[in-house]
């Protein structure tokens, strides 16, 4: 029997989820800041940061899309045991997990409606690394300008152009994560 699916959850869920959420809140409210999280471990290739976000934000009420590369039996078993989120197509997902390339194209993901812009997907993007350089970010949560090593520029400019509709992003590398809400203006750095 596979036991990998049974390990890697929070040891003390209320407390560790509260810390995970504060990291997620700070990252999304201050684009460009990089938070470090701990306490969760999912089967490869899921990063620690992505595992913390999954445990903190997802449950049986949140359809989850697994992009190719992350959609495997080990990851599905882990999610089924710890989270219980139904695995869904891109068009129905509230959350999505994968590398930037594997998540493309973004068009099928929900961007909300003009009356309910909150009914949109949040994507957990797995990255090789995460640095405070590269794309220049301005907008809510940023005093003057911030920099973040985004996988590309044009997709986030198009996302911002649709504001208040749009998709929200977390970038995960190892145990570090950063957020990019739809409200952020992105330029080449």
């Amino acid at each position: 029997m596979q036991t990998e699916a049974l390990t890697g959850g929070f040891a003390n869920p209320p407390v560790e989820a509260s810390r995970g959420f504060r990291a997620a809140l700070n990252a999304l409210a201050r684009p460009g800041t990089i938070e470090t999280v701990a306490g969760a471990g999912a089967p490869a290739p899921v990063s620690t940061a992505a595992a913390v976000l999954l445990l903190t934000l997802c449950d049986a009420e949140t359809p989850l899309y697994l992009a190719p590369g992350h959609d495997g039996q080990a990851v599905r078993d882990w999610i089924a045991f710890h989270i219980g989120a139904p695995i869904a197509d891109a068009g129905e997902a509230m959350f999505a997990l994968g590398t930037w390339e594997a998540l493309q194209p973004l068009a099928p993901f929900r961007a909300g409606t003009s009356e309910y812009p909150d009914r949109s997907v949040t994507l957990f993007v797995e990255m090789e690394g995460l640095e405070q350089k590269g794309a220049r970010l301005t907008g809510p949560g940023i005093r003057e300008a911030a920099h973040l090593s985004l996988p590309e520029i044009a997709a986030f400019q198009a996302n911002r152009a649709a504001f208040p509709l749009g998709r929200d992003f977390y970038f995960c590398a190892g145990d570090r994560l950063a957020g990019l809400p739809r409200s952020t203006m992105v330029e080449a750095g």
């Binding site: 997620a24 809140l25 934000l57 812009p117 909150d118 949109s120 208040p164 929200d168 409200s183």
Partner: peptide, 10 residues
């Protein structure tokens, strides 16, 4: 928490 994060995003 999910509602708060969407509120922050919009």
């Amino acid at each position: 928490r999910r509602a708060i994060l969407k509120g922050v995003a919009v």
